[in-house]
Design a protein around this nucleic acid. Sequence first.
DNA 1: AAGTGGTCTAGACCACGGA
DNA 2: CCGTGGTCTAGACCACTTA
Lengths: 242, 242
Amino acid sequence: MNKIRTEPRIEPLYARVRAELVRGLSSGELTPGMALPAENVLAREMSVSVGTVRKAVDSLVAEGVLTRHQGKGTFVTEQTPERANFHFFRLVDSAGERVLPETLREDVAMRPAGNRAARQLKLDPGAPVVRIERVRAIGRRPSILEVIDVPADLMPGLETESPLPNALYPHYQADHGVSVVSTEDRLGAVAAKPKPSKALGVPEGTPLLRAGRVALDLTGNPVEWRRSWFLTVDLAYAVTLG
Amino acid sequence: MNKIRTEPRIEPLYARVRAELVRGLSSGELTPGMALPAENVLAREMSVSVGTVRKAVDSLVAEGVLTRHQGKGTFVTEQTPERANFHFFRLVDSAGERVLPETLREDVAMRPAGNRAARQLKLDPGAPVVRIERVRAIGRRPSILEVIDVPADLMPGLETESPLPNALYPHYQADHGVSVVSTEDRLGAVAAKPKPSKALGVPEGTPLLRAGRVALDLTGNPVEWRRSWFLTVDLAYAVTLG
DNA sequence: AAGTGGTCTAGACCACGGA
DNA sequence: CCGTGGTCTAGACCACTTA
């Protein structure tokens, strides 16, 4: 079979199929929740075998961008609050059970990006960002302070959308077509400064878990810079490495 | 092709191939660094097609247990200090560069498992464990206190092997045939109590990043319970979710 | 029954590494 | 040169969903 060579390939065929799918995903042709064409249809359209399509789809399924349902089809993964919370915010209580924070206070405003924000978000210093500050609670106890910067150009109108839903990533996706697919965190312990101390209602100097996070979309583009302070009293940040 | 059905399958064939490989890995037939039989050989031996073998091998490669080298073969992944440090201990400095801690002080002794250790390691309370206490430094500054419990039965003689090498997981594998393939961490911030305070040379109450970790082998069996206290001054714990 | 993804096969050729 | 993994094909049947 396939004894005819057309031209030497540099890049595997499935990579080209994958790139084509990624193109559709970032261009908005394929929107969250939508079913992809059947694998044999894609194969015919792109003049490749089904196995090659499967390999391309496999890689996107592994990254969580697509979801297969046997007998039904392959769908663009929808960022549900459940998925966002369990995948990107793995907070557990002392018994190891996952917990969901809820927002207590929120402040949203437009401002120019600071130097650090600009570097993390790959923006020019002074470019407009939307800053979201939230205090979140586990049970009734204020436990998390979040300061979030988002490029204003990426999500126009975000600054007018307060109050924002509890889980931001599904909102980014549903209302602005921005899908977070990976995050990079840096964790450390700090003594509470005045602002986190007031926000969480604990004495200054209280040890807090501090996280700096950059969230990336499918193309590796930074879409959010977030600094969080966690009061890890009846709360822990869970990480699995494999 | 393959029009003859022998008997209904419940479990996919590649899962049986994978299970067979896992058996070889945990039984010691396949040891770290060793080359597997070629894929077509495995396929013939197990009376399956090469594609099926590939699918089984793929999954173990994805888990980091096997490593492919085109033109050379497939090998059982060797836990090098580099790999262990970069994969399971992602510590970075303020510039984001990875850093390697070195051991300053070490204490190794046999003792009965406490209740928490027994639960985490799935042992009977009082079963013998080897406890390793280490103070580790970044640069010249004492930055990490580690208290590690390992089931004594799993690694006989470990208590006599002090001083232990800097990276423990390669040692577990090379000298005791125990391969760590995944870890589960719980992170929080605490105020330094007397012991960590003395070990790290900081005042009591200094905020420390505290990590509790269980390390698991290929079969999900716990092989180590570790509590660490990090002085995150010029040090951060990096996490990538995707 | 028709359509989807899931598994499996047999065999081709390509790219790399080492004798 | 040969053996290894890497890519790709064409087509079969299975398992699940929906109508």
